[in-house]
Amino acid sequence: MSGNLLELNQLSKRFPVRKGLFQRVVGHVNAVDGVDLTIGRGEIVGLAGESGSGKSTVARMIVGLLTPTEGTVTFDGEDVSKQLGTLAFKRRVQMVFQNPGSSLNPRRSVADALKVPLRVHGVPSSTWAERIRSLLEMVELPATFAQKYPHELSGGQKQRVAIARALAVQPELIVLDEPTSALDVSVQAKVIELLLRIRDELDLAYLFISHDLSLMRNFSDRVGVMYLGKLAEMGTSDDLFLRPQHPYTQGLLASIPVVSEAEEALKPTQRHLKGEIPSPANVPSGCRFRTRCPHAFDACREVAPTFHELSATHASRCHLHDPALAGSAEPTKA
């Protein structure tokens, strides 16, 4: 058995599209389409991609808010696809949501929010006060915050409470679905710092979801890039940021604003992404990225590319890596 904490195997989610008076099913959205992903103990894996690429759907399947249509979720060597909703599993995997404005109940105090997981998982109530104090300390909030209500907190403070809530049951994996994208840049940096410190102290694993690639670079050990429900490229942070191979990754990186000359030099010589991401209800034939790809050639229209292993850690789903097909196309790099 491999030492992976979490393994996603061909994970897929199809949403029915309903229309009309009787809510007839008129089609399907392939929000997530055969995703393979592993997360090791204590590892931070990033998941990037534009809006609508299926990142949140992956997250929600991992924590059991959605049931996969196909594929399996293996946690600590055990297939938990059928028991994603069970308490024993829930204790070990937690989630922090994107929107600090709605992740705390406006009618319930911080202490109330932190008590929910404690009560559910049978932590004796005599220890709650102490536990809440230490959770708040962990996320660098004063103990007096326990009595506060969400409207008295800033966005960053709310997100710290949400992190404390996720930590309450001592999970092994936390899914962070864009935990900082609603925050100011300066607050963002502090929350990221906090997350890193907590990871080191508690030896947690994170699945860190964001459409902000610049944030991933220093934060994640490995990064997957999703496009329309499929992983386009997967590799270590260095693989992806120094040697991006998939035209989509290159396009995403090209659109990151840079602050220094040195960073500019590192950027791939790649045009910015053009056009909009197509609807997942109507995925292009062959390679789903071909409608926006500057290198697209005939084969891309007909054959869906498979993953090509570029190194032990690096894989990319593109026909350009297939010598038999790529002969007719221009090379990846100028």
């Binding site: 929600r60 924590v63 059991g64 808010l65 308490l87 829930k90 204790r91 937690q94 989630m95 949501f97 994107q98 929107n99 709605s102 992740s103 705390l104 109940n105 319930r108 929010a113 929910v116 997981p117 559910v120 998982h121 949400a162 809530r165 309450a168 049951v169």
Partner: peptide, 20 residues
């Protein structure tokens, strides 16, 4: 709302979500 989903992820019962 995300606080409802957060309660679900924490393992809260339907009773808790409905009434609390």
């Amino acid at each position: 709302e995300e606080y409802v989903e957060a309660a679900k992820v924490a393992g809260a019962s339907d009773f808790h979500i409905l009434f609390r």
